[in-house]
Design a protein around this nucleic acid. Sequence first.
DNA 1: CTGACTGTACCAGCCGGTCGGTTGCCGGCG
DNA 2: CGCCGGCAACCGACCGGCTGGTACAGTCAG
Lengths: 194, 194
Amino acid sequence: MNQKKRLVPGRPNSRDSILDAALRVTARDGAGNLTLDKVAVECGLSKGGLLYNYPSKEALLQAMLERLLNQHLQLMEEEYETLKGQPDATLRAFLRAWRHDEQISMDASLAIIAAAAQNPGLLQPLKEHFRDIYSRICRESDNREQALMIWAAADGLLLHRIMDVAPYSHEDKAAMFDAMLRLAGDVPEGETVA
Amino acid sequence: MNQKKRLVPGRPNSRDSILDAALRVTARDGAGNLTLDKVAVECGLSKGGLLYNYPSKEALLQAMLERLLNQHLQLMEEEYETLKGQPDATLRAFLRAWRHDEQISMDASLAIIAAAAQNPGLLQPLKEHFRDIYSRICRESDNREQALMIWAAADGLLLHRIMDVAPYSHEDKAAMFDAMLRLAGDVPEGETVA
DNA sequence: CTGACTGTACCAGCCGGTCGGTTGCCGGCG
DNA sequence: CGCCGGCAACCGACCGGCTGGTACAGTCAG
């Protein structure tokens, strides 16, 4: 009846598009209204098909979280490579990663909220991720409180965005990121501090 | 059969205890698992009694949000009175208010998450609150980006706490708040900057 | 033929909300 | 004083729709 995907021999392709669909539903209807039926419809799949790929809602949420965490982690590590050895390398990598992939950061937050709403226990991996970043930031900085504050500020901007309560413009937000990077000792190429 | 309240002539008392119960359920089970039945049990009321006080789940969520918003606003304005006219008065009042009522900040975040999960539209009043604070902070500061960053950092700490992913100790958190206050030009009585 | 995958009918439990009581307090009235 | 009617607060059985999950009969590439 409706068009199908059938692009692949193996199984690798549906799973990602399911996660994308889940993200879209979450963004549209709110984390508390994420249902398997909606996800199935959203990605043009039957519910059975969905549950074949992810045997339960919890598995789906876990996969959402895991994928986004990995994406962000990879982005961050790429930045980190160029900064290794410099002061506040992790913090600066973290900021840069978020600054230039707004989409991932948005998706990640949605996934996090959806997971937390369903079952707070799902946030365990996230917790470990945070602990890891935290200890790296502390270790690399000789101004611990300030570094941690900058880190928190990035998450605050994220919170505003998830809740859709941010009262500032994109330019303001970019300016804040710049201020944060500068405070962290980062001069984002070709810029001079006045 | 079971004990009753019957403390009051009018009607004013149940409503608050219902909101408290709703907050406890949210904290225990996650925002997505907040149900009217659970709230009713939690506050020792029947479902009918609950719905007598708040005619729908949405009304309840709205009331949660409203009460917490008002509490925080009042705390903030009290601090603001002592700072009026000084630079960054709003920002500093905001930080002080949150720093010394952790309970309200925690409850507020839970209420916000619960409301957002159910129906993102409920966040409208919150949005206006944010817009208000934002414009005040901008107006009062001669270092706009920094002031906004500090503000965002406070919300970031809050996010960590809601999600229960904060990897730092209470002392670290207090130290961060102090660093933020200091950056905002606030010297919290009897302290000297080194 | 096979096995990875899909579509659909169905189910049991839960959830928000309704509704017809019941309880206990109060003021009035003879 | 005792009885009555009214009323706010509350109770809990019930309902219909939705949700997560299952069963199973296909479908199609290799």
